[in-house]
Nucleic acid binder design. Structure first.
Length: 266
DNA sequence: CGCATTTGACCGGCGC
DNA sequence: GCGCCGGTCAAATGCG
């Protein structure tokens, strides 16, 4: 835990991006955020799925539609498994009540290894988005530990699985490149952080988190486009200067909209 | 030495 | 019921 509030980079700037808009939608399906840089704005769509309070299936369907609309890879074979729009019920079947269950969600394992008994995997709220970036792992202010990597169907790129290093935190995230657009990284967060960012990096890219902002939003990656006045190390994850945030896609099929734009502080 | 990453194996869920 | 695939674990390995 000492790594909690310790390192990781330059002090956050208070600025790279600011939330000028508001969150819309609430926890029932999606939302939108507006960030203004003063010179450019980016619309980021995102979505998440909450086990409870799920809106009518119809709503999902609707949202799901938008998914393809924004250019999600065409469903191929089992894609829908993850895009689980039709599977929402099952996905949300379990409750989120027991965060700890997360790690428990593990399935049983080899006799030799000890795995808890039939614990049903618990899916927590998810939040996915696309980001144009050359690097796979976007800096979002939290420390992540990779715990797996898998080759996925329909994509020549492997999918990486990360878990928040905070013991108490059960948040996980998956990172994979879009098979259609290799320059696009699809990041999916699952769960909610129960702690503050573990690094000195700008919270969610300088996005001022507010009590009104759903936790999911905190997952917004640091949109480091280097704030105008910010001197970020060249190791920034998002090297692309142009479109950092591309339309978002969520493997959950639930999307909302986030209008993001870099906020230039002068 | 400690921590993060890599990698192979395993399990459960879902579709056919 | 079977097979495929996603997701996770844990030992091994690498790196700082």
């Amino acid at each position: 835990m000492s790594d909690e509030d310790t390192d990781l980079g330059p002090a956050p700037s208070e600025s790279s991006w600011s939330l000028v808009g508001g969150f819309e939608g609430g926890c029932d399906g999606g939302g939108a955020y507006f960030f203004d840089d003063g010179e450019k704005s980016i619309l980021t769509e995102f979505g998440w799925n909450i086990q409870s309070d799920l809106p009518d299936p119809a709503s999902f369907d609707e949202v799901g539609s938008s998914t393809s609309a924004i250019g999600l890879p065409p469903p191929d074979r089992r894609v829908r498994e993850d895009a689980s729009i039709p599977n929402l019920p099952s996905v949300s079947s379990s409750s989120v009540e027991d965060p700890a269950a997360d790690s428990v969600g593990k399935h049983l394992q080899t006799p030799g290894k000890e795995r808890k008994g039939a614990q049903k995997r618990i899916r927590q709220a998810r939040f996915a988005f696309r980001t144009k970036s050359e690097v796979d792992q976007l800096e979002d202010g939290y420390r992540w530990r990779k715990y797996g990597q898998k080759a996925v169907k329909n994509s020549p790129f492997p999918r990486s699985y990360y878990r928040c290093t905070n013991n108490k935190c059960t948040v996980k995230k998956r990172v994979e490149r879009s098979s259609e657009d290799p320059s696009t990284v699809i990041t999916t967060y699952e769960g909610q952080h129960c702690h503050h960012t573990s690094s000195a990096f700008p919270r969610a890219g300088g996005i001022p988190l507010s009590p009104h902002v759903p936790a999911t939003t905190q997952f917004l990656p640091q949109l480091h486009r280097g704030a105008p006045h910010e001197v970020h190390p060249p190791t920034l994850l998002n090297n692309n200067d142009e479109d950092h945030e591309a339309p978002v896609a969520t493997d959950e099929g639930l999307l909302g909209d986030i209008l993001v734009s870099p906020h230039k502080r002068s």
